[in-house]
Simulated scan of single mutants.
Amino acid sequence: MPDRTRPIRKEICLNEQELNLIQHKMRQLGTHNFGAYARKMLIDGYIIKVNYTEQKKLAAAVSRVASNINQICRRINQTGRFYAADIAELKVRQEEIWSLLKESQKQEL
């Protein structure tokens, strides 16, 4: 194949345990292409794949809470009835949620 972009070929020999370990790591990464995986590992030495699923769920929950707080504030502004302690409590709770989100993200990274 003279028109290959990678004409240099390298081969490795593995035992069954090593092959299973490599295949397991490839599954964890979500790749099926051994050549691409091997090149990436040989050149960079490591691959980091971060799963932000939990952070996205937490951020969505925080967004919903913030939206609810805004709706309550609008209704209070329209009717003119509110309790300062309730508003302060809502602000404190929202700040707690944001702090939890930030802490969770720090721990992930």
Rank of each mutant, 00 (worst) to 15 (best):
Y52Q: 15
L109M: 14
T5I: 11
L14I: 00
K106V: 05
N77S: 12
V62T: 06
H32M: 08
K91L: 10
E96I: 00
D3R: 15
R75A: 08
K106G: 00
Q107W: 10
A38R: 01
I76Y: 12
I87V: 14
V62H: 02
L19Q: 14
E95H: 04
N33E: 03
E89N: 14
E108T: 08
G35V: 12
T31V: 12
K40F: 04
E54K: 11
C13F: 15
R75G: 07
I22V: 12
L101R: 04
R6I: 07
I43Q: 08
K10V: 10
M26A: 01
N77H: 13
V50C: 06
Q55M: 12
M1L: 08
A84T: 12
H32N: 15
E89W: 05
M26D: 01
R39H: 05
S63I: 03
A85R: 15
V50D: 05
N51I: 03
K91M: 08
I12L: 08
K25W: 05
R39V: 07
N20P: 01
N68C: 02
G35P: 00
N33L: 01
I72H: 02
K91D: 05
P7L: 02
M1Y: 07
A38G: 00
Q17N: 07
L58W: 01
E103P: 00
I47F: 02
Q17I: 07
K102F: 04
D44E: 12
K25F: 05
D86E: 15
E96M: 03
L109I: 13
C13N: 15
L29C: 03
A60V: 03
G45P: 00
A84R: 13
H24E: 13
A85G: 13
V92W: 02
R64L: 12
K10C: 06
Q55F: 10
L100T: 09
P2R: 15
N68T: 02
D86M: 09
H32Q: 14
I47G: 00
K40R: 14
Q105W: 06
F34Q: 11
P2T: 15
M41F: 00
R81D: 13
S104G: 08
K10W: 10
Q71D: 07
G35W: 02
I48K: 15
C73F: 13
G35T: 14
S99W: 02
A88V: 06
A61W: 08
C73W: 09
E96N: 06
R74N: 13
N51Y: 06
A59T: 11
E54N: 03
E54I: 04
K57D: 07
L42T: 14
Y83P: 00
L101P: 01
A66L: 06
V62P: 00
Q28L: 12
A84S: 10
G80P: 02
N70S: 15
K102V: 09
L19Y: 12
L101F: 07
I97A: 08
Y52E: 14
G30D: 03
D86P: 00
A85T: 15
E89I: 05
S63V: 03
Q78D: 08
E11C: 04
R27I: 04
